[in-house]
């Protein structure tokens, strides 16, 4: 694994984020609210990646953490809002508690613990909460049985993508600090694996969004949760 390969993966990931954002913005007003909410993190992701590249180019080390911090906070809040809608606005207190808890951890981590390094603990928190949301959504699917062919449900793909990505990267986020501080690893191999998983996640989400668009064309008023 080389730095060039890692950069290439990052660029493909950025391109796929744009594809996802475009697919979510297509016929924006007639889309379900959760699809619109899921589109935003990818727009923010693209912008933050671009900002990260610019910061790297101009060697502005003091701000390296800022784009990632902005991304993780906004992505978390948007995913939470999307899942809140998907879960029929149930578990309100759980959502509020998890969001407040996460924001507190993220802020403390950003300003106190991991000021000068990657905010990996924040990512761990995000991964845990998104995994919980994803499992709750699958539980809802099993209880409500909304569709005969589950693979035609856009959110099945999106949820699977998020579950697989955050489960796969959870261990990496957990050990990032140990790897960099104790083992002094440059993380290229690990981060390449992260980006490959991210590409897989993006592709699964694109499949889900394609199903949503085809559904939108055949039945413009149908819900697709």
């Amino acid at each position: 694994m080389t730095l060039e390969f890692l950069m290439l993966l990052g660029k493909i990931q950025m391109a796929l984020s744009v594809v996802i954002a475009v697919l979510c913005l297509y016929r924006f007003k007639s889309r379900e609210k959760y699809i619109r909410l899921i589109g935003y993190p990818f727009i923010v992701g693209f912008l933050c990646n671009a900002a990260g590249l610019l910061l790297g180019k101009y060697q502005l080390r003091a701000f390296y953490n800022v784009p990632n911090f902005v991304y993780v906070i906004s992505a978390f809040c948007l995913f939470s809002a999307a899942y809140y809608h998907l879960l029929n606005r149930k578990y309100k207190s759980l959502f509020i508690a998890l969001t407040i808890g996460f924001l507190a951890v993220a802020l403390l981590n950003f300003f106190l613990y991991q000021k000068n390094s990657m905010n990996s603990y924040t990512y761990v928190g995000e991964a845990i909460v998104i995994i919980i949301y994803a499992i709750l959504y699958f539980y809802k699917l099993l209880v409500e049985l909304p569709e005969q062919h589950i693979h035609r449900l856009p959110m099945f793909w999106i949820n699977s993508a998020l579950l697989i990505f955050f489960s796969g990267t959870f261990i990496l986020y957990t050990f990032t600090s140990y790897l960099t501080n104790v083992l002094k690893d440059d993380l290229i191999a690990y981060w390449s694996f992260h980006n490959m998983l991210s590409l897989f996640q993006h592709l699964l989400i694109i499949v889900g969004l394609c199903y949503d668009i085809s559904r939108l064309r055949t039945n413009p008023v149908a819900g697709s949760r």
Partner: peptide, 23 residues
């Protein structure tokens, strides 16, 4: 790291497959 990550991925994949078949 590989074992833990693969374990987590297998768990996530199993959940997805379980939901698809059980549904």
């Amino acid at each position: 790291f590989s074992l833990l990550t693969v374990g987590m991925l297998i768990m996530a994949g199993s959940i997805v497959l379980f939901v698809a078949f059980y549904q």
